[in-house]
């Protein structure tokens, strides 16, 4: 019986192991990168998310919305611009720092008081309705505002992009197979088309894109499109990595929270399993079954 079960299982597994039928296009598999956030203990690299936000704001935001995020998200627990009240032992004063460093303890600064997020939001003009006249107007952004979308509606987005709709990036790394690797590969995967491939006018060859031809021009074509304040060299590869890291955070900002609660929960459940097993064995002790 057991041998049969194993044989059946093996057969079933062999079936699943059969190579997947090739897709209709010659789309390349995303290149597997190393990310700090992968694995059961992975966390986001805060500095990279910060740099990636700069790349998004400077480059991507011209066409891509991020409509499920608000500026305040940047300063929430786990966000790239979370600020903390930290006690500085040298000066003997409390001060506000960006993130927590070197194992310091600190209290998260309420979003209304976060100076970094306030500055980021204030730099953006947000469409609004004038309270007195009802006319469309613009005002400086507040932390509670959603990220400003580059186009008022999808039709305008298409019209401005030769008929192609730049996707919203809020959950982009969840909305693609192998999301982070895909985004990174796509950003760095532009090349001349291989010989014999017909050129599609107004599109760009990218072997990681389904069909090979993408409407988005190479977004990170040259170095130093942004200037990193931490001194990191803004090479196209570095910018692609950083913005991917930012988008991974944007897609799943609670990932670190989930993993850390997961660790506690799994540990708890293991203990409980052990205890319940003992109790179960105790109950059945002496009962042949």
């Amino acid at each position: 019986m057991r041998a049969h079960c194993l044989a059946a299982l093996a057969a079933a597994l062999a079936l699943f192991a059969t190579p997947q039928a090739h897709a209709e296009t010659q789309q390349a598999h995303p290149h597997a990168e190393k990310w700090s956030f992968s694995g059961p203990f992975g966390t986001y690299d805060r500095a990279s998310v910060q740099r990636g936000f700069l790349v998004y704001e400077t480059v991507c935001a011209a066409c891509h919305s991020l409509r499920h995020l608000s500026y305040r998200n940047l300063g929430e627990e786990g966000g790239p611009f979370a600020a903390y009240r930290v006690f500085n032992e040298e000066t003997g004063q409390h001060e506000t720092t960006l993130g927590l460093h070197g194992g310091h303890e600190g209290k998260l600064v309420e979003i209304q008081d976060n100076p970094y997020v306030a500055a980021i939001a204030a730099a953006v003009m947000i469409p609004d309705i004038d309270r007195d006249t009802g006319e469309a107007t613009e005002r400086a952004g507040r932390p509670s505002d959603r990220f400003r979308s580059p186009y008022p509606n999808p039709i305008a987005a298409r019209a401005a992009n030769g008929g192609a709709l730049p996707p919203d990036l809020s959950v982009i790394t969840l909305a693609r197979h192998d999301g982070a690797n895909y985004v990174h590969s796509l950003l760095t995967g532009y090349s001349d088309p291989p010989a014999g491939v017909d050129v599609v006018q107004g599109k760009y060859y990218n072997r990681y894109f389904a069909g090979g031809w993408i409407a988005m021009p190479p977004p990170l074509a040259s170095a130093d499109m942004v200037t990193y304040s931490d001194g990191t060299a803004a090479t196209p590869e570095q910018m692609a990595r950083d913005v991917t890291h930012f988008l991974a955070w944007a897609s799943d900002p609670k990932m670190e929270m989930r993993k850390s609660l997961g660790l506690q929960s799994m540990a708890f459940l293991l203990v409980l399993t052990f205890l319940v097993y003992l109790a179960y064995k105790q109950v059945w002790r002496g009962t042949k079954h």
């Binding site: 609660l261 997961g262 799994m266 459940l269 399993t273 319940v276 109790a279 179960y280």
Partner: peptide
């Protein structure tokens, strides 16, 4: 007898459940 045995497997099942939910 049955409740303890059921409970044991339920907790084991929760481990699998948690593995998916958290990771």
């Amino acid at each position: 007898h049955a409740t303890m045995k059921d409970l044991f497997i339920t907790v084991v099942f929760l481990l699998l459940f948690g593995l998916f939910v958290f990771y």
